[in-house]
Design a protein around this nucleic acid. Structure first.
Lengths: 159, 159
DNA sequence: GGTCAGTTACTCGGATAGAACTTGTCCGAGTTCGGACGG
DNA sequence: CCGTCCGAACTCGGACAAGTTCTATCCGAGTAACTGACC
């Protein structure tokens, strides 16, 4: 079970976009992070479809956060990129084979599914606790210098 | 991010094996669950490599739990089948691009990685809290009838 | 009847193909900006 | 000098391949049990 690398890109981009006042094009975000523009476009497309970022077309177009960074959680991004469904999907093998349980005995999930769901719930809650604003506020503290300033300038440039 | 279906099979098999006194061959476990014998063999092989189950070769061979069911957690099985590594792997894109952070600024994980690691830790703790014995004890309660009895008889048969 | 060797059948273990998903790329539809033109 | 029109460049959006992981399968090495002969 490996999380898509697109999630990492998407979160980084959202943090950067939280600093932007004007729309930032995909090409510039890709340049900043030194990643494939085409593939990053795919991830941003997914974020756009999930109403996390808002597209702006035309000459000075690009992407912008669709709501305040405080209201965007890491979970939102993970679900947008990686899919909202559960990571563990029960195939109900208890209803198969010679000793299969009857359907009416299976009105509630099996113990294994419950254990997995509980763990996944804890994972989701933890991801929901981190907002983009939280992450952004940690960056400068981490490096003990103003990194976000140059980034803001970089994404403000066009070309 | 989807968890391997082999994990589901492996957990089910471990629950069944917790009832067994004599080694149970792969073919019988596959028959009980109505799944591919060959592929199930691969999963059991992984469990064997992780010292969760113990193989017994020869005429009346098969697999048996390597330690009491109380000491086998769901996390053990997930790590054995799906790999022990973290699901989120940071590619350190902060060290790339025109505004790359220097290596000595990155002595500790970035905020995004920390958030992911925290969530994953919560997930692991929840999985560690469920033992195979716990799951087995819930089965009969769930169905309000003795399912484990027939299963014990089934896996005791040979042929 | 007991012991022993040989045979048989069964088991696990690793090496080998196919399918599905992730990763990476491309080109077309639509929109905005800039400049040229006319009033 | 100002408003309008036109062209061009830039943007996003979805459709199209390559690589990697997961899924499924097969056959060989090794071991325990069984059968039969022998003592």
């Amino acid at each position: 079970m490996r999380m898509s690398s697109g999630v990492e890109w998407a979160v980084h981009c959202c943090v950067v976009l939280s600093l932007a006042e004007h729309p930032v094009p995909t090409a510039r975000l890709a340049q900043l992070h030194d990643v494939s523009t085409s593939y990053l476009a795919k991830q941003l497309q997914a974020l756009s479809g999930a109403k996390i970022i808002r597209p702006a077309q035309g000459g000075s177009g690009g992407y912008l956060l669709d709501r305040p960074a405080e209201q965007i959680t890491v979970l939102d991004i993970v679900e947008a990129i990686d899919g909202p469904g559960p990571t563990f999907i029960c195939t109900e093998i208890r209803q198969r084979g010679p000793l299969a349980a009857t359907a009416d005995q299976c009105n509630k999930p099996c113990a294994i599914t419950r254990a997995m769901a509980t763990a996944e719930q804890a994972w989701r809650e933890a991801l929901r606790a981190s907002s983009i604003a939280d992450l952004a506020s940690q960056v400068n503290t981490d490096y003990d210098s103003d990194i976000l300033g140059p980034v803001s300038q970089f994404i403000a440039q066009r070309g």
